[in-house]
Amino acid sequence: MSTQAVVPYFTQVILSHRNATGVTDAFAIVHFFGNTFETAAQVAEVKRLGLDGLFAWLNGPANPILEYGSLGEVDAAVEAQLRVLRPLGIPLLSYEGGQHLLAGGSMRGDLQLESILDRVNRAPRMRSVYLKYLASWHNRTGQPLQHYVHCDRWSVYGKWGAEEYASQPRARAPKLDALLAFIASSPL
């Protein structure tokens, strides 16, 4: 069974249908950090924060303008899902995850915003954000995380790839470097 990460109520409803708990061997959620920035207020906040401010938000407390997406909020959503699943003896899995810093709706294509999002994803500091994110997931669930995309050219539709092109040097792909470092230090 599966659902979104941030709404444990959906998990309860899904598992309460007929005999769902009796036939469910695992429950999977989408597990991303970051957000889709769709409002003028969110875009203005991203521009005001810039690179340093976005990293502070990802690593720090919630930002009411940017809404959900900091590592702390994502970790709290995982714990909320586990509170539903633990009493049922159902393990929590990830069906996709990684960073989710995206311009959406009419904000897509804003060149200044896209530049900031590209720089955040390419910044060496993204490696440490990923390592914290992966460690938090692993420590809470004991399960591997399914990263959404290994290799993909970034665009206004997302910066999903851990690397932007197949021959990208690992030193220039902080998300890929973090994934490989984490795998090496935490084998299954």
Rank of each mutant, 00 (worst) to 15 (best):
P187D: 08
A184S: 14
A41D: 11
G72V: 12
E114G: 12
R119Y: 05
L85N: 01
P87Y: 04
V46I: 13
V43A: 07
D75G: 14
A166H: 04
F33A: 06
R125M: 06
N121R: 10
G89A: 03
L66P: 03
A135N: 13
L88F: 02
A166F: 11
H147F: 12
L131G: 05
H100V: 01
V46A: 10
R140C: 02
Y68T: 09
A171K: 11
S2A: 10
I65D: 03
A76S: 15
N19T: 15
M1I: 09
Y157Q: 12
M107P: 05
P61F: 01
F10E: 00
F27T: 05
W160Y: 14
P174K: 12
P91N: 04
E79L: 13
S70N: 14
L92G: 00
D152N: 13
M107E: 13
S128E: 12
A178E: 13
P64I: 04
L101Y: 06
V156N: 15
H100P: 00
E79S: 11
V30T: 09
L179V: 15
E38N: 15
Q81N: 09
L102T: 01
V149Y: 05
E45P: 00
A173T: 07
Q4R: 07
Y157D: 15
L58Y: 09
H100S: 06
A26D: 06
L188G: 11
L131E: 14
S106Q: 13
C151A: 11
L145I: 15
D152I: 05
G89N: 01
A26W: 10
Y9S: 02
A20K: 07
A135Y: 06
A103Y: 02
R18V: 10
H147T: 13
E67Y: 08
I65H: 04
L88K: 08
E79Y: 01
P61M: 02
Q42I: 03
H138E: 05
Q4V: 12
W137F: 14
S115C: 09
S94W: 03
E163I: 06
T39I: 13
P174I: 14
R119V: 12
A44L: 05
W154Y: 05
H138R: 10
A181C: 14
L145M: 13
G22C: 14
P87D: 04
E38Q: 11
R83K: 15
N59F: 04
L145N: 01
T24N: 12
L131Y: 04
S186I: 00
W154G: 06
Y130P: 01
R108S: 10
F32T: 02
I14C: 00
F27C: 08
R83L: 09
S16H: 03
V13E: 02
E38W: 11
A44R: 12
Q4M: 14
L113K: 14
L117A: 14
V129K: 02
H138V: 02
A41M: 08
Q81E: 06
V6P: 00
A5H: 07
P187S: 11
S155R: 10
P8F: 05
I14V: 06
S2I: 05
R140S: 13
L102C: 04
V13R: 04
D52F: 11
S167P: 00
P144Q: 08
Y165P: 01
S16D: 13
